[in-house]
Nucleic acid binder design. Sequence first.
DNA 1: TTTTAATTTAGACATTCGCTTAATTATCTA
DNA 2: TAGATAATTAAGCGAATGTCTAAATTAAAA
Lengths: 97, 97
Amino acid sequence: MDAKFKAINDPTRREILQFLVNGPQNAGQIASQFDMSKPSISHHLDLLKQAKLIQADKKGQFIEYKLDKTGFEVIHAWFKTFSTYFEFPKPKIRIEI
Amino acid sequence: MDAKFKAINDPTRREILQFLVNGPQNAGQIASQFDMSKPSISHHLDLLKQAKLIQADKKGQFIEYKLDKTGFEVIHAWFKTFSTYFEFPKPKIRIEI
DNA sequence: TTTTAATTTAGACATTCGCTTAATTATCTA
DNA sequence: TAGATAATTAAGCGAATGTCTAAATTAAAA
């Protein structure tokens, strides 16, 4: 739990998550998006992985990262705790177009 | 944005938020829930207030704190960014009991 | 008006965090 | 097998964080 909130606390890590919405990317591709050393990005990826917000798949010489539903679901569950308080209005019927 | 993620990163501050689901509480009541000095709790309350996750209302000698929807909505919006990726299944029709 | 109570502000200190460069591990290819 | 490439691990450093005690502020009570 702590690891997940810690992971999304850093702006670089949040950017990495956003970047991965485009689909899986290897560590080098991710690092190239940032004006920061590769070891730093590697460290960020490690924290995101520990938090189960991303998954790592070794593809030969490369390591491919993608979003991991597991961690997001846990955080989402935490948020639901507050929905009772705020009573977010929900549609009775939703029309699908 | 940063302030909100920073605010929910700390376990004590998350506990304070949970505690406030029970309804508004003054600073002393909140502090009494924790084995921690009042100044520390006061500092946590300040960070939560800056993040617009709680609101402070001065009631005479006391200061009453309650949850603030504003901050929660912003964080919730951030989360929605990822819903497209995960395609959380949604009910076509929801029956209200 | 003096005292008491609620809360915050200020200052100090240890720990954690994010970053860098240098070294290491693993894989591919000539 | 040697050399090059992808990525991580290690070591170190300044800045930010969370906590405390003590002092200041504000409002109610006596």
